[in-house]
Design a protein around this nucleic acid. Structure first.
Lengths: 206, 206
DNA sequence: ACACACATACCAACCAGTTGGTATGTGTCA
DNA sequence: TGACACATACCAACTGGTTGGTATGTGTGT
């Protein structure tokens, strides 16, 4: 019944990849692991992906598309003021630090550390994922700078990438310490920096 | 003559581990890879380390001790004012972003992402390495807060961990983008945040 | 003589990827 | 309508090579 099952097996493999690779890393995850987690056979795997590396690239794209949809639909996107949107982004990222670590950490941040030197194609896919997400943040930053009349030595792109560095680093610390609390506190510091830059009054109790 | 060669083979293996694991990651690095890079046999490896996991833990400790000595000997340590020392730390971290990526990135930040869920003993060693280094930064932060009479909602520990998150995240971005420039710009933003917190006049041209 | 620091040879389990095959669907032309 | 050619989706079994780890030597200094 191919029409009914169209793409189901492939999607099951990609969903499994997100879960398993975020928990174990790319190298430690075997094709058999993926197949077992997805409940499919090895033949099905290599029918949909020509190699493990191709699955890695596809997983990065899949993760990226999923993240795009989550942030596009997030409530903070509706805020009128670009500074509010920027701070809303940080608050939203803080709010989604829920559940187990493999549920909210970043697939591409994990993968790129393992593959940047040995699998250039995966590194490029991860870089595109991070850069595209940063570009979304950069748009709000550029508007915020214009709205507040801020002329700085740093670029909107540089600050957007900085937000991503904080988030990626916060995930590493969360993994090292076994929980998301340290990551939340990192996002609080990031928020404080942005408030400082955009002359925004700090929230009470923060 | 064992007295002369005392520890040489073990050290060669640990040095190789630093290089190879930072380039390929922990899981993708085989014991054979390590032996080849160190120029020793497998028998020697398992004479000094009872398992690959034990090597991972030893490598984290070895990296940690190396980092300790580098930072203890760094010129910024001689600065009298704790705020200068804190900013000096960031400047020093920025200055050592030299050479190839595996030369200056963080072994434990790389390893913990791959092992936090599957090798608790390695995760603990990585966590200790990060936390000990953060504690060194935290001491200067605590003194800086006292010197400037700063009472904040955040703790010195929280800010110290934030500096480590920025550094770890900067390494991920550097790997994704293939060079250290983005990491340097992240450290510039971190410096700006610290200047803001400690009411320090910004440097010109920054 | 004995412990230590290695080296050699080897193993079972696992690895990514291939094979030959089946079941099911789709487009086309008479 | 139906028969044929072809494509898609999948499967179980297999392959050559690699994995972490072990068992058993061997040379050397004390």
């Amino acid at each position: 019944m191919p029409p009914k099952d169209q793409g189901v097996t492939k999607t099951r493999l990609l969903d499994a990849a997100l879960r398993v690779i975020r928990a174990q890393g790319y190298s430690a995850t075997s094709v058999d692991d993926l197949c077992a987690a997805a409940g499919v056979t090895k033949g099905a795997f290599f029918h949909h992906f020509k190699s493990k590396e191709a699955l890695g690239i596809a997983a990065a794209d899949y993760f990226s598309a999923f993240a795009d949809s989550v942030f596009a639909a997030a409530p903070y996107r509706q805020l009128k003021d670009p500074v509010d949107r920027l701070l809303g982004y940080v608050d939203f990222r803080r709010a989604i630090l829920q559940g187990q670590l493999p549920d909210f950490t970043c697939l591409v941040g994990t993968m790129v550390q393992e593959t940047y030197d040995t699998h250039p194609a995966i590194r490029d896919a991860c870089n595109k994922s991070i850069s595209d997400h940063a570009a979304m943040v950069e748009a709000d930053i550029a508007q915020a700078m214009k709205a507040r009349g801020i002329k700085a030595e740093w670029s909107a792109e540089s600050l957007a990438l900085y937000t991503q560095a904080v988030i990626q680093g916060a995930f590493i610390l969360a993994k090292a310490k076994g929980g998301p609390q340290v990551a939340a506190e990192c996002l609080d510091h990031l928020r404080r920096y942005l408030e400082c830059i955009f002359h925004h009054p700090a929230r009470k109790g923060q």
